[in-house]
Amino acid sequence: MRRSLGILLLVAGLAGLGLWAWRYFFPNPEQVIRSGLRRMAQLASFRANEGPLAKLGNAQELASLFTGTVEVKVDLPGHGPMRVAGRDELMKSLLAIRQRVSALRVDFLDVNVQFEAGGDTAIANLTLKAAVPGERDFAVEEFNFHLRRSGRRWLVELVETVKTLSERSRERGDRLTAGFAA
């Protein structure tokens, strides 16, 4: 009895390990996209003491998650509509943000991934939350990230703001954060 229980546990453990290894080495496309977006949020965040080399390296790595012909069409509070075309221009914008803002924490919340016909393109709908560490207020915007498969990677080819309220204007207030934790 005890021996068969031990064998059962061993088989279950090996099966779990095998499943983990399979998912690790052969992740499904949604996992790859989610992992890429998590990395994007990490790279978009920076501390006040980020050195110039780290600043450049992180901005470069962040830009590498986008296609060469990426288009960013955003309508941010207080800035109005903006358009960035191409990875080089995006890189310049990313560095400019890092110069202008002392520190930033970026989170992608409620990521919903939908694959389009053919399976080589996908749209990730998400809420971007950006805050300066230590400050109570934060900015929130809903975005659609259009992604395209490139080998085993998924690169962002279009970023656009989603109008949660169609006649909207700018504001940094009036938000609810669900649950007990932000």
Binding site: N112, T127, V162, T164, D174, A178
Partner: peptide, 8 residues
């Protein structure tokens, strides 16, 4: 918004 983490 995209989900219920942040709402208006």
């Amino acid at each position: 918004t995209a989900g219920e983490s942040v709402m208006y």
